[in-house]
């Protein structure tokens, strides 16, 4: 037996994403953000997207290109502190923003990937983030229901992948990517290195190939992946 080959081109992988799709994007700041795939989303002029990502990158980088190009209707995120443009667009009503506590965003995505409908938590229960969410009693304590998150597509960045889609991430570039890989109908990965089947030791795989649909090799990185000199 031999594992299937899922390699494809960036253009065709992104072309399959329809307008109006819900798209999860990996990354926390620069590490893990699929900058080249984001550029391709902009180039193909996608409209009306719901983006799920930890942050909106910085002004002039990554998610900000999607915002400026008018591709985004709604953003589900935890923090926009480094992107003044995103905050301005939110305040002006040009995009809808749903804020989550960061660990709740992670856990809602993990739950979606695990086939669960919701999670029960007390995070944010005494804050405005807990307002309006259904309450339940669990073992004598009040908790609330947070719905699970799934997406039509997850677009992720890996340090290494094989053609079947077994993935390894580098350092803090892992963040939300293994969770999003489980929680989307279609998972598209850009990888810095494309290695042969068997080159990744089975014990070292971070995301197993069955979660991944398309693998795109990006032999050269753009400047956006580099160290940000603030």
């Amino acid at each position: 037996m031999k594992l299937p080959d899922k390699t494809t081109t960036m253009e065709s992988a992104i072309a399959a994403i329809p307008d109006g799709a819900t798209v999860m994007l990996g990354g926390f700041g620069v590490p893990g953000t699929p900058f080249l795939m984001i550029r391709e989303l902009v180039r193909q002029n996608k409209r009306d997207l719901t983006i799920i990502k930890n942050d909106a990158n910085e002004t002039g980088m990554g998610v900000d290109h999607l915002l400026v190009a008018g591709c985004v209707r709604r953003l589900i995120t935890t923090h926009l502190g480094l992107n003044a443009n995103a905050i301005r667009m939110m305040n002006a009503g040009e995009i809808e923003v749903e804020f989550c506590a960061q660990g709740m965003l992670a856990e809602r995505i993990r739950a979606g990937g695990a086939g669960l409908k919701a999670i029960v938590t007390d995070i944010g229960i005494d804050t405005e983030m807990g307002a309006g969410k259904p309450r339940v009693e669990v073992n004598g304590e009040t908790a609330m229901i947070e719905t699970a998150l799934r997406a039509d597509v997850a677009v992720l960045h890996a340090a290494q992948a094989d053609p079947f889609g077994n993935l390894c991430y580098a350092a803090t570039a892992r963040n939300f990517s293994p969770l999003m890989a489980m929680a989307a109908k279609t998972v598209i990965v850009e990888t810095e290195k494309l290695v042969a089947l068997g080159a990744l030791a089975p014990d070292h795989v971070h995301t197993p190939g069955p979660f991944v649909d398309h693998v795109v090799h990006i032999p050269e990185l753009s400047e956006e992946y580099a160290v940000v000199r603030r």
């Binding site: 935890t78 502190g81 506590a101 960061q102 660990g103 709740m104 007390d122 995070i123």
Partner: peptide, 14 residues
């Protein structure tokens, strides 16, 4: 100023 809480809620609560 409303950039979102990031991970602050979980840290403060737990």
């Amino acid at each position: 100023f409303s950039p979102g809480a990031g991970g602050g809620m979980e840290l403060a609560q737990k």
